[in-house]
């Protein structure tokens, strides 16, 4: 409850209030999307140790699940959103055999899976279903204000879930699996089941984020919602802040994505240099993220 009051409420309130004082709403919306995605990576990588290089596959599945519901069934967006997220969860279920792999092999197989989904979605022979490579236009349900409000609700749910994981036996079990699956199994944890639940929860978060993103932007190509940059950013933000914490990914997004935009607008010519140097510095001096630095200073970071 303390974490809900100290983290969830202030973060959600901030994003609820900011649109009235700062008019670049898309930027605020993107901050929320990246917090969701970084927290989604946090759930599967931070808590269970599986690094999903193809995490964007769930995001894209959510975006397309949402869009196809709207296009083919004329579903209202608030109904299409959970169905879209359901598509991401189904994809997650479909990919559960990947857990036979570990480490880099899992990451690479996951990346390949995401690329395969992109190729299927953008296949011109499926134009009548997915619109193929020609992109989606959802002008009929275009409503950025409601989409923003829904993103706020998804953000709150995501933070609530991570707070639960941070404070529950289930979250502890996941961390035990991350540290040593065999010992965790010996201690009575159902490793396979718990890991799959975390994986599907992570897919659900990305699916919801993808659906609400599709709703907000309303015109996009397959490459837009399956862009590897979403995965890279989400992983980098989560790592920068600190995994297996509630605050870490939020800090990562606020600082790094904030910097990304500030540098991109003010001095785009130095953008890659500054950003690259920052990430190198992080890897060299703070491999466990900003949170580890705060803890070194004696602060108890949730």
């Amino acid at each position: 409850m303390r974490h809900v009051l100290l983290i969830l409420v202030p973060v959600v309130a901030t994003f609820a209030i900011l649109p009235s004082v700062y008019s670049n709403h898309l930027l605020l919306f993107n901050f929320m999307i990246f917090i969701m995605l970084a927290q989604g990576v946090n759930v599967i990588y931070g808590f269970t140790g599986y690094l999903p290089f193809g995490y964007v596959g769930f995001f894209g599945a959510g975006a397309y699940g949402f869009s196809l519901m709207v296009i083919h069934l004329q579903a209202p967006p608030l109904l299409a959103l959970p169905v879209g997220a359901g598509a991401a969860v189904v994809l997650g279920l479909f990919l559960t055999p990947l857990f036979r792999l570990s480490g880099a092999y899992f990451s690479i197989a996951n990346l390949a899976a995401a690329l395969a989904v992109l190729q299927v979605v953008s296949n011109p022979n499926l134009e009548s279903i997915t619109k193929g490579p020609y992109g989606i236009s959802l002008s009929g349900v275009f409503n950025p204000t409601l989409a923003y409000g829904t993103a706020l609700a998804v953000l709150a749910a995501t933070l609530g879930l991570v707070i639960y994981l941070r404070n529950s036996r289930f979250g502890m079990a996941l961390q035990a699996i991350r540290e040593d699956p065999i010992s965790a199994g010996m201690a009575g944890i159902n490793v396979v089941r718990e890991r799959i639940i975390a994986w599907l929860l992570s897919a659900l978060i990305a699916g919801l984020a993808g659906g609400v993103f599709a709703w907000y932007v309303s015109v996009f190509y397959p490459e837009t919602v399956f862009s590897g940059e979403f995965t890279i950013f989400a992983i980098v933000f989560a790592l920068f802040g600190g995994n297996a914490t509630v605050v870490g990914p939020i800090l990562g997004v606020v600082i790094l994505y904030g910097l990304y935009n500030a540098v991109g607008i003010s001095t785009p010519q130095y953008f890659q240099l500054i950003y690259g140097a920052l990430i190198m510095g992080l890897v060299l001096f703070l491999p466990n993220g900003l949170v580890s630095l705060l803890r070194r200073w004696g602060l108890n970071v949730p």
Binding site: S23, N24, H25, L26, L27, N30, V217, E223, T224, S227, E229, N261, G264, I265, P268, Q269, F271
Partner: peptide
Amino acid sequence: AYDDQSNNATAATLYNQLITQ
């Protein structure tokens, strides 16, 4: 004029910047 570096997400933010800021 801003440089979007051929990046869609950057372009989106910069279009917003042009309009709102």
